[in-house]
Nucleic acid binder design. Structure first.
Lengths: 235, 235
DNA sequence: CAGTGGTCTAGACCACCCA
DNA sequence: GGGTGGTCTAGACCACTGG
């Protein structure tokens, strides 16, 4: 087996055997060079890859530590489109079409566990990537969950980021559809009538009950969802 | 900016500017060493990271190429359709349109890590729910992974189930798109031209390398993907 | 200050692909 | 056989951390 893989495996084995607990400091590059009779570049590569995989946490001047693991088992992340876009080195923009309290209709009331006609916050925002619309975000938020929702400046901070900062949801649901856009959505997203859209319905709950219901509509030609995961990372 | 990041950015820029199309060969390590006045290790690191991110496809002895399609982040678990259907107490059926060895074209060869023109297994199956088409499954399978693929009876056992019985993949990738169906697919799925389709590209790997590449196309009106996830609290 | 990780160089040997 | 990538070495300089 390749030397850098042996080193990775040695560290992974040690972690799963409990020889190094979460947060513990693991041997330095210098130590591992001696243990494996390897050059520093080789040891460094092994540790850098483990760091990229989120297994280790490395700090210049301090050492390398076992990362306290977020549960990787279920492969579902809440993700903020602004971060996605800036990770691709593109420019994210928001156009706020709507931000107000409205009366819940029967469907929304049922989903958010409110009485029909109750106050519910509604926002409608178009997200652009390098100026091109990539997502229409239509979001209903329960006032119980985010009472100050209307007072936020969502051109400075995305709704996702704000809501996540309030409280982590305890439960998340995603449903993905392919749909045709109606004429209003076609106009907003600047797409022809023939273009299919990828629509994600995302609902979140906290312990206090339903929190948000978001309908995210994306032009099929400009957006896709993906996930990739390694089945047996840490074993 | 760090040198290896400059090199990565240079390649990413060139790809998004269309200077190197999908599948095109990009400069060799040797070329980039000269361009950036960098050592080979540094160039190599830049290209290795792009390869790990699925941007490049590298083949020893042949060169480095732009990978077709770039995965996005986040989301989603996907089940075997036959199980889904029978869990709903509906009747699952399969129509086998194709099951043969074909020659890999450049795109498939790159994805499955084969030489162009190499033998690769290809199957095309329509799945029906109570007689109505709900999925067109177009699957390429590496002979290295499943040498006896062609000898199976896939009307008795789904391809997914057979492949999973051989070996669990170590890595799985899903990419979800909304697309319009071409006329052949419209006919197969019995849908009108206006109906958008939900398309899932699923790729799997084992330790020995790429194993399968499946394109699953569903009528938007008859199929959606869903997932619900209870977030684990951090300990 | 000594220890540590981040980056980089200038070589090397090997396995592989393709003309 | 010439070009290409995969791995590895033995150095180097730097930035940062901690006692």
């Amino acid at each position: 087996m390749k030397l850098y893989e042996q080193i990775k495996q040695h560290l992974l084995d040690g972690i799963s055997a409990g020889r190094w607990a979460e947060g513990a400091k693991i041997p330095s590059e210098h130590d591992l060079m001696a243990t494996f009779n390897a050059s520093r570049m080789t040891v460094h590569r092994a540790m850098r890859e483990l760091s990229a995989d989120g297994i280790l946490h490395r700090m210049q001047g301090a050492g390398s530590f076992v990362r306290r693991q977020a549960p990787r088992s279920a492969l579902l992340e809440i993700h903020d489109i602004a971060e996605d876009i800036s990770q691709r080195n593109h420019v994210h923009g928001s156009i706020i079409l709507h931000l107000a309290a409205i009366r819940a209709d029967a469907a929304i009331a049922a989903e958010l566990d409110l009485r029909r006609g109750a106050r519910v916050f509604y926002s409608e925002i178009v997200h652009t990537e390098d100026g091109v619309p990539v997502q229409l975000e239509q979001r209903h938020v329960s006032p119980r969950f985010a009472p100050d929702y209307l007072a936020q400046d969502f051109s400075a901070q995305t709704t996702s980021r704000y809501l996540q900062a309030i409280a982590q949801p305890t439960e998340v649901e995603h449903i993905v559809h392919a749909v045709a856009a109606d004429s209003r959505v076609q106009t907003i997203l600047e797409i022809p009538p023939s273009e299919p859209c990828l629509q994600v319905l995302r609902r979140t709950w906290t312990e206090a009950g339903p929190a948000t219901r978001s309908l995210l509509t994306h032009p099929g030609s400009r957006y896709s969802l993906g996930s990739r995961y390694a089945v047996n990372q840490r074993k």
